[in-house]
């Protein structure tokens, strides 16, 4: 028996048809008074009650799993706030508060340690070396593990080598993990990765995640097209869908997302029909959205995988005609006179 079979998330995946994850961190912290430009992670220490409320609101709304307030708790991001020495501490506290909320809940709730991207571009295009990226992720994972998370959870990743570096770091920290990428550029990640390409990438990674998928991105429709892209492959890992509640709008000095709870509940049931089993929101998703999603999923019987037209009718148009996986993929016809092996 491998160590994974006893992981609480693995047990939950075995026992439940679907798992409702949480919603936004940033949006909800703004609603509690966070100022733009400030690091949300500093609140783990300076305003732990608010972080506790963030988690608890999500659990009370029906989430079976929530992410810790540690997205940017890594060296390269905390450096901006002169807090790069606090990676371990801020990560650990984010997890400890989460542990407390989960352990006092009457339901079984998973604490997943959020690990966002480093924010730097890796070699050879950028300057961040693979080994430094591994170190950055490793440090954060150790902090989250010390605070008692059930799994670590890499999210909003765009580049393949950064995803691999995270996987290696989590293996060094000897902790189970999940990983999601953000498909926000014509159905692909900023670095051009399509949904099936993420599946291929994972098949090559030795330290397999417990589940994988997509988060953030553009709108609910795009998110589901991405999930269909995962489902169409021969992958057998559980699929995660954490989409934004619409698009950001600015009014009364606050960011607010235009996706209604009704839209997010349609999204949640369609995500399940598309093949996702860990379903949640991302930016803009408040406890109200989560309650609606919970209710919708509770009353939902799995349907056939929807066609793209059905998704567009239910949730709105896609942001691009193609997601790079079909015949509509745009290409440039060029006659390259230079013969190169590059």
């Amino acid at each position: 028996m491998n160590y994974r079979s006893s992981n609480p998330l693995q047990i939950m995946l075995n026992n439940k048809e679907w798992i409702l994850a949480d919603g936004a961190t940033g949006t909800n912290l703004f609603n509690m008074g966070l100022s733009s430009g400030d690091a949300p992670e500093l609140w783990n220490k300076s305003a732990p009650k608010k972080i506790k409320k963030l988690y608890k609101d999500s659990v009370d709304a029906g989430s079976d799993l929530f992410l810790t307030n540690s997205f940017g708790a890594n060296q390269s991001r905390l450096k901006l706030h002169n807090a790069e020495k606090s990676v371990l501490e801020l990560s650990r506290i984010s997890a400890e508060i989460g542990r407390e909320v989960a352990d006092t809940s009457r339901r079984s709730v998973i604490v997943a340690g959020s690990v966002g991207p480093t924010g730097e571009i890796m070699e050879p295009i950028g300057s961040l070396s693979y080994s430094t990226a591994v170190e950055i992720f490793h440090e954060q994972a150790e902090g989250l593990k010390a605070g008692g998370v059930d799994v670590v959870w890499a999210e909003t990743i765009s580049a393949a080598n950064e995803f691999e570096a995270a996987a290696e770091a989590f293996s060094l920290a000897n902790i189970d993990w999940c990983g999601t990428m953000s498909f926000d550029t014509a159905g692909r990640t900023m670095f051009g990765i399509t949904a099936p390409e993420l599946v291929t990438l994972i098949s090559k990674i030795r330290n397999k995640p417990l589940a994988f998928g997509a988060n953030c991105g553009v709108g609910a429709s795009d998110m589901l097209r991405t999930v269909l892209g995962f489902s169409a492959t021969s992958n057998d890992l559980p699929i995660i869908a954490k989409g934004n509640a619409g698009i950001p709008k600015y009014s009364d000095g606050k960011i607010h997302y235009d996706g209604t709870p009704e839209l997010m509940s349609r999204y949640a049931t369609l995500a399940y029909d598309c093949g996702a089993t860990i379903i949640g929101g991302c930016c803009g998703t408040t406890p109200n959205h989560l309650s609606a999603m919970r209710k919708a999923l509770d009353g939902h019987v799995k349907g056939f995988s929807p066609k793209l037209e059905t998704i567009a009718e239910a949730l709105g148009d896609f942001s691009s005609i193609s997601d790079g996986t079909d015949d509509n993929t745009p290409t440039r016809k060029r006659q390259n006179r230079r013969h190169r092996t590059k």
Partner: peptide, 10 residues
């Protein structure tokens, strides 16, 4: 980041 974009307004 959605947490930093409002700073433009500032």
């Amino acid at each position: 980041l959605t947490t930093t974009m409002p700073y433009m307004k500032v």
